[in-house]
Design a protein around this nucleic acid. Structure first.
Length: 114
DNA sequence: TGTTTGACCACGG
DNA sequence: GCCGTGGCCAAAC
């Protein structure tokens, strides 16, 4: 075995975002307490296709789909969110304040599954 | 090996 | 509300 790399930690957290909710780069970075929000975005860039990581549930702090341009199609991210019941309007998550989910809700019981 | 690059964020003016 | 700046640190080159 080896130590999980930073982006594997990010994937693990992103996978825990509940269906129909969204989280932010900053919240994840803050929860991991390792670095910065930029690294979270960078990590997702490397692996938005790395099996089973719901990267579409991660948006920036204003609820904007800042990563949409990195998808095979820019509209794909929005479509996936809407499939889960998250309304998106003008590249922004509608009712972002209500749908926002913080990994801090997990408490201290966070386990990594790689 | 040093430098550059990021799907960002908080802060000050 | 906008704009510039600094911070953050792993990977790529």
């Amino acid at each position: 075995m080896r130590q999980p790399t930073y982006y594997e930690l990010v994937y693990a957290v992103v996978k825990l975002i509940p269906r129909g909710r969204v989280s932010t780069y900053g919240a994840i970075a803050d929860f991991l307490a390792l670095g910065s929000a930029r690294m979270v975005g960078w990590a997702l860039n490397k692996s938005y296709t790395a099996g089973g990581v719901p990267a579409h549930r991660v948006v920036n702090r204003r609820g904007e789909l800042s990563g949409r341009n990195h998808w095979p199609s820019p509209s794909m991210m929005q479509e996936m969110l809407e499939q889960e019941g998250v309304s998106v309007e003008d590249n922004r998550v509608k009712d972002f304040g209500r749908l926002f989910w913080s990994p801090a809700e997990l408490g201290e019981n966070f386990e990594i599954h790689i």
